[in-house]
Amino acid sequence: MLWFKKKKYPAFWNDYLKKFKTSQPKSIENTRFVVFDTETTGFDTLTDRILSIGAVSIFNNIIDVSDSTEVYLKQDEFKAETVEIHGILKEGNLLKINENEAIEQFINYIGNAVLVAHHSAFDIEMINNALKRLNLPKLKNKCIDTGILYKKLDGKKESHISLDMLCDEFNIPKHDRHTASGDAFITSLLFLKIVSKLKQERYVHYSDLFRASNNKGYI
């Protein structure tokens, strides 16, 4: 810990930390959720790299498209075999920024929001590893995994359920699958639908959303 204290963080990170000093809202309606997704060169959180991040926020059960972000990253790491999944070419004509810029933007964007992602452990780990490369600590945000949230519904105990399967079950059109923003948007609809369904089944306390979450980012 002594090593961290000596460390001098960049201004954006200090701003980020400050946002956690004030007490956080304790209801679903008053919480800003940021639903996000990353597209990566592969599934190894250590060697693979983030190619794009897409995110959209939810406040008071409403998805706010104006509060969304979408960035593409310049990476040296490139795997031809995953191109067909995410569709991002190394030299595509998308505007790409460096990983450090992208992470700074993302950190500024999320603030102290509760992060939501499908199988969030992977995306959080990818972000945390990128932070590590910048000599920064891990994300401090609370986190919800829609995969785990789904299992709180009555009679849903499947161990691993894909976003595609959930889209079918919840009648969400699978447009723009495998673009970070598209998946983030789909996940945000999924999140609203699962929460709504949970509320129908029983009284849902705010903290229920986080319980049984085996997420490391969760405090």
């Binding site: 059960n61 409403i62 104006s66 609809l189």
Partner: peptide
Amino acid sequence: CKSIEVQYVE
């Protein structure tokens, strides 16, 4: 479209 809000209603 960039500033639209999306609401889900049960």
